[in-house]
């Protein structure tokens, strides 16, 4: 029983990081129907901003987190302005290829400055409590709690504020809504800023939990988070959260009860089966294709 409980805790930690990254994919898809494949690398940038702020500026946790989130948001908005905006009328494939290119650019740009894996200093003094045989570390609790707070905040912004309302309107109809006087570019920038800053926050938490970072760390995680977004129903914010926790849970529990070599194989087979029965994801709705 304690074994199961320990593994559930592990799953919550991994799942909350997946969920935060999946949100970035889903928000961009919701508003532009494009997949921002550079998102995993923006997550990596978040980890590196955290490393820079903590190592060279010696900042404590909260300012480091804010710097990383703002830094990544700025990069995200710039990428949208210079790389994606000129292609807004181009075929979807062009935009996706560009996103892949931007991702490779970010990896190699970071590689120039940090060819070695870097060690992130300890920002939060870690204490481990043992309760009934289950080891709970303060870091684990902070990661899970902070992710949930960020997700509730995002849900609030999207559902209750003017910006959020504009985002939802644009995702509904990109052609008509600007005619109503809603500044399209500004809202798209805001979406990118929000989505990528969550990726940046995930990068910081990841760097704290697994404090060896390298320029390629975002590739695998980016793919997995993208899958989480698809499983939850891409374009749906609550779906991305659920998808992240499902993927984290499946991965950890497969490794917990089957030989760990089967982990990715079984985990992704289960997700494929799920998509056969719910092709639009758990919360996704089929969009009628306009002719």
């Amino acid at each position: 029983m304690t074994y199961l409980f320990q593994q559930v805790l592990n799953a919550l930690q991994l799942g909350s990081i997946y969920a935060l990254i999946a949100l970035g994919y889903t928000m961009v898809y919701g508003i532009l129907t494009m997949i921002n494949f550079a998102h995993g690398d923006l997550f990596m940038l978040g980890a590196f901003f955290c490393f820079l702020a903590a190592t060279f500026l010696h900042l404590p946790f909260i300012p480091t987190l804010l710097i990383a989130m703002i830094g990544v948001a700025i990069v995200g908005v710039l990428i949208e302005r210079f790389a994606y905006k000129p292609l807004r009328q181009a075929p979807r494939v062009s935009a996706i290829i560009t996103a892949l290119g931007v991702g490779i650019f970010l990896e190699n740009f970071t590689l120039v400055f940090a060819p070695y894996p870097q060690s992130v200093p300890t920002l939060i003094k870690n204490t481990t409590w043992v309760i009934g045989g289950v080891s709970i570390s303060s870091l684990q609790l902070i990661i899970i709690a902070l992710s949930i707070v960020l997700m509730i905040l995002l849900d609030f912004i999207v559902r209750k504020t003017m910006v959020g309302m504009a985002m939802r309107a644009i995702s509904w109809d990109k052609a008509i809504v600007p005619l109503m006087g809603i500044p399209l570019d500004l809202v798209i920038s805001a979406t990118f800023a929000l989505g990528t800053s969550l990726g940046g926050a995930a990068g910081v938490m990841y760097a704290l939990a697994f404090p060896v970072i390298d320029p390629y760390m975002g590739v695998l995680i980016g793919w997995k988070a993208f899958i989480a977004a698809v499983v939850g129903g891409i374009g749906n914010i609550r779906g991305a959260m659920i998808g992240g926790f499902i993927l984290g849970g499946v991965e950890i529990l497969v490794a917990a009860f089957l030989p760990s070599t089967y982990r990715d194989f079984v985990a992704f087979t289960l997700l494929l089966v799920l998509l056969i029965f719910r092709p639009y994801g758990i919360l996704g709705k089929p969009r009628p294709q306009k002719v």
């Binding site: 074994y3 939990a209 760390m217 695998l220 030989p259 760990s260 982990r263």
Partner: peptide, 15 residues
């Protein structure tokens, strides 16, 4: 076991 690039080993280590 795990695969190259994994950073979370919590499931295996708990086992």
């Amino acid at each position: 076991t795990y695969t190259t690039g994994d950073k979370d080993f919590s499931a295996q280590l708990t086992k």
